[in-house]
Amino acid sequence: MLAKRIIPCLDVDKGRVVKGKKFLNIEDVADPVELAKRYNREGADELVFYDITASNEERDIFLDVVESVAREISIPFSVGGGIRTIDDINRVLRSGAEKVSINSAAVNNPDLIRQAAAKFGSQCIVLSIDAKETAEGKYEVFINGGRKNTGLDAIQWAKHGEQLGAGELVINAIDTDGEKSGYNLALTKAIADAVNIPVVASGGAGKLEHFSTVLKEANADAALAASVFHYQEIPIPELKEYLQKENIIVRR
């Protein structure tokens, strides 16, 4: 039986893991390789690294981090942040990542998803969507780290992404990000029910129940979180034990 996945997310800035709230107020947390090793040991199912810097010089530092992580862990991980071209994707995959996560660049150039899926296979192309509720029940896609509203409907964009060849969606709910009040269930469910590719819920995890709710009620295939894991507010072994008791299939 396919297990639901628990995915710690590591935002990396200049070679360090940082934690932002609603994409602002960046705080330093840890060394990415050490944190990745800890998660590997604790039974995380997958990791996500977002490179939140953008300059070329910092990009090379980040690729070194990717390679060091790949050397140290034996679980899959994806990499996102600033990926704009086929060459960027190639470099990230060749540094040891399983998947790449594309966000703003896909909105600016949807054909990137199609080309990337054709070249590397859909299974390694993740479309990451930052969505915000702009009117009652209406979610729009934001880019550039949550700063710019594209006016695209999030559910339509998710479906379009699937058609273009994305193999997975990460749905980041901007409104709940960093609030620890739970995932955005309505948004996650609307997208999970609209597509036939795996959906990763992101933004808002604060308690054990938030994970079971989004995996059960919102049909998410995986739940992503950052600070609750980084600061060990929710240890992964405890979370897995809890989810198993809730009759959710997890890898233990």
């Binding site: 039986m1 299974q123 036939n196």
Partner: peptide
């Protein structure tokens, strides 16, 4: 088969 989500992604037994 499209009866399940494709890709088959994650940990399976």
């Amino acid at each position: 088969t499209d009866a399940v989500k494709v890709p088959h992604m994650g940990w399976n037994t």
